[in-house]
Amino acid sequence: MTTANRPIRIGLQLQPQHADYATIRRTASEAEELGVDIVFNWDHFYPLYGAPDGKHFECWTMLGAWAESTSRVEIGALVTCNSYRNPELLADMARTVDHISDGRLILGIGAGWFEKDYTEYGYEFGTAGSRLADLADALPRIESRLAKLNPAPTRKIPVLIGGGGEKKTLRMVAKHADIWHGFGDVEVAGRKLKILDQHCADVGRDPAEIERSVGVQGDPEDSGAKLHELGITMFTVGVGGPDYDLSALRKWIAWRDAQNG
């Protein structure tokens, strides 16, 4: 599938902070009913916004529950922190959630960055360079373990790599990812995508094989068309607890429907 003919997809990052789990589950179901394509959470142990020690829930146990409580949407972490789980274990977890969900898991992964998670839970924080090196080591191990598991995954589980590092992260995207996720305005996204295309050329990968995704805020009329012209086809809205306002998500879904026809 080429970049040009990919349908636009809308994601929701349902941030598991400052809310009871019942509210999180209801919001995931509401987003599915609204027609969202993917529901993501994130892989942290503490809130990123608001009260730093507020309510918070763990990522992958929640994905296992969402695999049962939803029926249509794809699900995944935006993104799993590579540092918190052995790569072979993560592959097995992903395969299991893939089966529970009947093939709806996206394996989102990144190098990690939130120091409080590391120090409070006993992981070595290291440096940005060491965390990226660990991710580069983990990705082929994950691929190898997925190929050995019995039963095998129900499909080739899409791998999403999040991050905008131009020398290392985007090269890993070119080598291993089915989806790239980044942040930034139109100018920043355009620059990152040109660099990603060059990394694809360097490793012999067709860049059109990689779906391009960004986190978005505000009204789709402000940035949607410009980002889409760059080849971005996945747009993800982030919402936090306790109330999970889905008004922006509704606008992006309506825009998607208008664009996709």
Rank of each mutant, 00 (worst) to 15 (best):
R205C: 07
E187G: 09
G163Q: 04
G163I: 02
I157H: 03
F125S: 02
E143T: 08
G231Y: 00
L193S: 01
T169K: 02
W113H: 03
R155H: 10
P151Q: 05
T233G: 08
A133L: 01
M172F: 11
P220Q: 08
G184C: 09
H181Y: 10
T236I: 11
G204P: 10
G164M: 03
I179P: 04
R250D: 15
M172L: 15
P151H: 09
R145K: 06
E209F: 12
S213T: 15
L146Q: 00
G204K: 11
A152E: 05
G162I: 05
G126I: 01
T233L: 04
V214Y: 01
A133F: 01
R131H: 02
L149E: 05
V159R: 07
K148E: 11
I157Y: 07
K226R: 14
D245Q: 12
M234W: 11
K192L: 03
A111L: 07
A248I: 12
T127V: 03
L196T: 03
E187C: 05
D197N: 10
V186G: 00
K175I: 12
Y118K: 05
D197E: 11
T127H: 06
R171V: 07
F114R: 06
Y123E: 02
L146N: 00
V188N: 11
L146D: 00
G122W: 04
F125M: 03
G240K: 08
Y118R: 04
G241A: 04
L146T: 00
F235V: 04
D117N: 15
W180G: 02
E120I: 04
A208H: 15
R250P: 06
P207E: 07
K226N: 13
M234P: 03
V173R: 05
R250C: 08
V173Y: 06
G182S: 06
R250M: 11
L246W: 09
H181R: 12
E209V: 12
Q198M: 11
S213L: 08
T119Q: 14
E115F: 07
V237Q: 06
L149I: 13
E211G: 15
V214P: 01
V237C: 11
K168S: 05
H199R: 13
T233M: 06
G204C: 10
G184Q: 07
L149D: 07
D202E: 14
G190C: 07
I142A: 00
D117F: 10
G238D: 14
T119L: 13
K192R: 04
A208G: 15
T127N: 09
E211D: 14
G112I: 00
V188D: 09
Y118S: 04
A208Y: 10
G224E: 08
